[in-house]
Design a protein around this nucleic acid. Structure first.
Lengths: 125, 125
DNA sequence: ACGTTATCTGAAGATCCGCGCAGATGAGGA
DNA sequence: TCCTCATCTGCGCGGATCTTCAGATAACGT
């Protein structure tokens, strides 16, 4: 992995380096950063993004509905849902032979909302 | 790419399919989903995540400070910043031979905040 | 109990992407 | 102008990931 020798770089010496020390202390550690990155990574895929926004709109959808909504083969949807469920981004409920998926919690919903604003899209909700 | 033949799947016929049609209409198209996914993807990496949270804390940092804060070689940081800047996640300002980076806008900041809550961390903000 | 429908799983292939190194570029200071 | 410092860029490798196919599993209706 990368060397980060504390060679007397530009980090100067006084106020700067103190400030940096403070920042370093508040930066998420590997464990937390890992969780955060993991969550973002899951959203960082066109297919998953579409599915999640579909769920944001619909509230709850079964695999075949999702497949129809985002135009993706059911097997692929299923595979994707497994990933999302494993990471707690979505929850599911079984009803007969159907399995209905939904966004896991309000945070995820808010996340999706905030992000859609960022791309300059006016929410429909 | 995947075939999505509209075979008379489970999508049933009546209320269900109508609902699905509505959802399909509101699902972001490839263009928008692409942008959203791209943004999330950029955040979906431990190193980048750390850097972004460092910027969230510090407000503004130069490459070498970032390097010190997240313990990553400067060249790597530089490379990473290029990515983030190209996608408009961060902005930069040059001062002498230093280049200071900062989070691009309030949306990104909010995004980071919301997400940190999700992982069960009490914000320091 | 049987066939059908809806969903899940496992594996293999192809692709993509980040990482770090080494050298180039730009900005100051003497 | 020469030298040093901060940052940037091009390249190649290693690794991780998405995709899809094909078969397995679970739930129903008859």
């Amino acid at each position: 992995m990368g060397r980060v020798l504390p060679l007397d770089g530009c980090v100067g010496g006084d106020s700067q380096s103190q400030r940096v020390a403070l920042v370093r202390a508040s930066v998420p550690d590997d464990a937390e950063a890992g969780m955060l990155a993991e969550l973002f990574r899951l959203l960082g895929d066109v297919r998953r993004t579409k599915i999640l926004y579909a769920l944001l709109e619909a509230g709850e959808l079964c695999v075949c509905d999702i497949s129809a909504a985002v135009q993706v083969p059911e097997a692929s949807v299923s595979q994707t849902m497994r990933l999302l469920r494993a990471s707690g981004v979505v929850g599911n409920r079984r009803e007969g032979r159907r399995v209905y998926y939904r966004l896991a919690d309000a945070h995820v919903r808010m996340l999706l909302d905030v992000c859609r604003e960022h791309t300059g899209h006016e929410g429909s909700r």
